[in-house]
Computed example of a mutant assay.
Amino acid sequence: MCIKPFNEIERVLNNSASAWIKLVGYINTNYIMDERWNDKDELKFKKRGKTLATFYVRDGYFLLLLIFGKQERTVFEEMKNTLTI
């Protein structure tokens, strides 16, 4: 596991850094989870050993994978047609 310094993340993400700061800040402010970096520039947020979100850091952007539980999937399926990109 490696921990990325903030200035390195900011340099790699460039214009996407502000979105990163908002999303990671929101998670850290509103949830209590373990935060772990791996060697592939992936930041995982875990609770009770289960990964709930993974950020994939790339040059100039990042991807966010959210893992929904059964209850969250049901809610998402009911509202997904109302969402826009």
Rank of each mutant, 00 (worst) to 15 (best):
Phe6Pro: 02
Pro5Met: 02
Lys47Tyr: 09
Arg73Asp: 11
Thr74Gln: 09
Ala19Gly: 15
Val57Ala: 05
Trp20Glu: 06
Lys22Phe: 05
Phe76Ile: 04
Thr29Glu: 13
Ile21Asp: 06
Leu66Ser: 08
Asp41Glu: 08
Phe6Ile: 09
Thr74Val: 12
Leu64Arg: 00
Tyr31Glu: 09
Thr51Asp: 08
Ile27Glu: 00
Phe6Lys: 01
Met33Leu: 13
Asp39Val: 06
Phe76Arg: 04
Ala17Gly: 12
Asn28Pro: 01
Leu66Asp: 05
Ile9Met: 04
Phe62Val: 01
Ile27Met: 06
Trp37Ala: 09
Lys40Ala: 13
Glu35Pro: 00
Asp41Cys: 06
Leu23Ile: 14
Ile32Ala: 01
Glu35Met: 14
Lys44Phe: 00
Leu83Lys: 01
Phe6Glu: 09
Ile27Tyr: 07
Leu64Gly: 00
Val24Ala: 15
Asn15Arg: 10
Lys22Asp: 09
Cys2Thr: 13
Ile85Phe: 15
Lys22Tyr: 06
Leu43Ser: 02
Arg58Glu: 05
Tyr31Trp: 03
Leu65Asn: 10
Asn81Ala: 01
Leu64Phe: 02
Lys22Val: 13
Ile85His: 11
Arg11Met: 11
Cys2Leu: 07
Val24Ile: 14
Thr51Met: 06
Asn7Val: 03
Met1Asp: 12
Asn30Thr: 02
Glu10Lys: 07
Trp37Cys: 13
Phe45Ile: 01
Tyr26Trp: 03
Val12Thr: 10
Gly69Lys: 12
Arg36Ser: 12
Ala53Val: 10
Thr51Gly: 05
Glu8Ile: 07
Glu10Ile: 11
Phe45Leu: 04
Thr51Arg: 12
Lys22Pro: 05
Leu65Met: 04
Lys22Leu: 06
Phe68Leu: 14
Val12Asp: 04
Lys47Met: 09
Arg73Ala: 08
Lys70Cys: 07
Thr54Pro: 07
Asn38Val: 08
Lys4Leu: 15
Thr54Val: 15
Gly60Phe: 08
Trp37Glu: 15
Val12Tyr: 04
Ile32Phe: 03
Tyr31Ile: 02
Met79Glu: 06
Glu8Gly: 02
Ile67Met: 09
Arg36Leu: 09
Tyr26Phe: 04
Gly49Met: 05
Tyr26Ala: 01
Leu65Ala: 08
Cys2Gln: 08
Leu13Met: 12
Asn28Lys: 15
Lys70Ser: 09
Leu43Gln: 03
Phe68Gly: 06
Leu43Gly: 00
Glu8Phe: 03
Trp37Gly: 13
Lys4Pro: 06
Arg73Glu: 15
Thr54Lys: 14
Arg48Leu: 06
Leu52His: 02
Glu10Gln: 10
Phe6Leu: 07
Lys50Leu: 13
Asn30Tyr: 07
Lys4His: 11
Arg58Leu: 05
Ile21Phe: 10
Thr51Ser: 11
Lys40Glu: 11
Ile3Ala: 14
Cys2Ile: 15
Tyr26Val: 01
Met79Asn: 05
Leu65Glu: 12
Glu35Lys: 08
Tyr61Lys: 11
Tyr31Phe: 08
Asp39Gly: 12
Lys40Cys: 04
Asn15Gln: 12
Arg48Pro: 07
Val75Asn: 07
Phe62Leu: 01
Asn15Met: 14
Gly60Ile: 13
Val75Trp: 02
Arg36Glu: 14
Asn28Trp: 02
Asn7Gly: 02
Lys40Tyr: 12
